[in-house]
Amino acid sequence: MSDILKVENLNYSHRLKKILQDVNLTLESGKIVGLLGENGAGKTTLMRLITGVAHATGDITVAGASRIDERKSHVSYMDHLGAFSLGTHLDRIVKFYQTVYEDFDVDRFNELADFLNIDLSLKLSALSKGNKQKFVIALTLSRQVELYLLDEPFDGIDSMSRKDIINSIIKWKPENATIVISDHYVSEISSLLDEIVVIKDETINCNLDADKIREDKGMDIEDFYESLYERGHDND
């Protein structure tokens, strides 16, 4: 397996506040990775930096590309569609994606939309939070790229839809692509993960194989994740 993502010595501050410090992270291709951390720990920031819609010092390489515009053609990041007015019909947004991304696979999108029960004749304003999230995920997964970044994909989603989304991730993930899923609630996705990456104290706390945690420590992922915070309290 080759490295799909390489982050080296990444430092990022926003409005005089340090958000990420000395972040180093390497991910292999073909994995499903859980990016864990408290709210505001910097999960979204890390994803935005990898994609290139925010800037930091340090080096980021995705599938061999380090220039921002090239990197963008290898990463599919969840776009929350803020640029579109609420009156926009979903099929127009699909057209937008189809035009703007060479790697957008319409057939795959239609399958996903069908599977997730998305009605494309609706307007953006007619979507519930969960349905909008499903639409965004379908768009994100329909690009054919090496790296997918899903930022809190289960936010605002009921348990039935969550199952559908998890299944669509399993079903439609290209074999060699890596998917990073951020979540602050681990147990809903833990069976899906190859590895976990924990962001804590402004940096990568650990990057471990999920089954190895279970095997070596006899712990479930959530307990392990919580133990990181307890240990932190002891040190204080």
Partner: peptide
């Protein structure tokens, strides 16, 4: 892949 979907786990 089908097995992965059946049991809801990762292909790897």
């Amino acid at each position: 892949r089908q097995l992965a979907v059946d049991v809801t786990a990762n292909v790897n």
